[in-house]
Nucleic acid binder design. Structure first.
Lengths: 147, 147
DNA sequence: GCTTGACCTCAAGTTAAGTTGAGCTTGTAG
DNA sequence: CTACAAGCTCAACTTAACTTGAGGTCAAGC
């Protein structure tokens, strides 16, 4: 069979739509993997495109790179993931998404009733209290991402 | 009638559950307003509690402080907002929320079909292309918030 | 064989949303 | 009237997710 050509960073960047610097960054974060040519340049196997696509999609739904990295741990090292591997991942995220959607709906439905009314007294407001509060941890910015 | 007591930062912090430093920060960002005592201490009118509550709720659904500030522009300066004022705001956000929920659903439904299948070739993948791409602008971190 | 565009590394900058700390002032309870 | 908790300001630090820039190397075309 025709050998599947390996890709350079530039090519991956062009095809995936993310900047070269971002690809470097993802690699540093362990989200993608490359090997080097004799001249120390990165070469990617084709499945990096899928990985990158998934990274962007996941980010769009509010999953942090750390979360994505964690999910990716379930993928096999040094073996191109099979469809089954990816399916496992997507199923896990589907649940996360379902949860988020449900949460948003609750908030949306609560908004009109609650902001508009006189009940915003914090302690008693159903909107403030019916949702499980975020567990806050660490320092610095806490809610950069809806997660 | 009994004069409605003004609140100190500490009281607002305690009642709203946000840190004093955050209140300072919100004020610097123009999200809340206070006047000062002769001794230069902040005093808040009661409706700051509602404002803060709304700030937190809005953040939880992924609206940035900048976005909240913008929405708050529609509220009257130097007049305690009426229920109608707040309603206007909540209606605007309801739409935003509806949009987000719809987007999430699309993504969720696309995920299983798309990640699991072999179509992740970026250019052709329906998931990658059917959504309106984010308009990227400025420098620095671009997708800290799902917006 | 050399020029030019693509790469490489590493450090530093950026934005958002706050927090932390130092140094100093207020206000209230005893 | 004097502690001492609560305020105040301002600068610096934090995290996430990248980008920008400087200074140097690779490789493909003419």
């Amino acid at each position: 069979m025709a050998p599947v050509r390996e890709l350079t960073v530039g090519q991956v960047a062009a095809r995936s739509g993310v900047a070269v610097s971002a690809l470097h960054f993802y690699e540093a974060r362990g989200l993608i993997r490359s090997h080097r040519t004799s001249g120390n340049q990165r070469r990617y196997s084709r499945d990096v495109l899928r990985r990158v696509a998934i990274i962007r999609v996941a980010q769009e739904v509010g999953i942090s790179l750390a979360g994505i990295a964690q999910a990716f741990q379930s993928l096999p090292e040094e073996r191109t993931p099979t469809r089954a591997d990816w399916n496992l991942l997507s199923t896990a995220w589907r649940d996360e998404l379902d949860h988020k959607i449900a949460q948003m709906k609750k908030l949306r439905d609560g908004l009109t009733d609650c902001i508009g009314c006189g009940c915003m007294s914090i302690d008693k407001c159903p909107l403030r209290n019916k949702e499980d509060r975020l567990a806050r941890e660490g320092t610095g910015a806490r809610r950069l991402v809806v997660s």
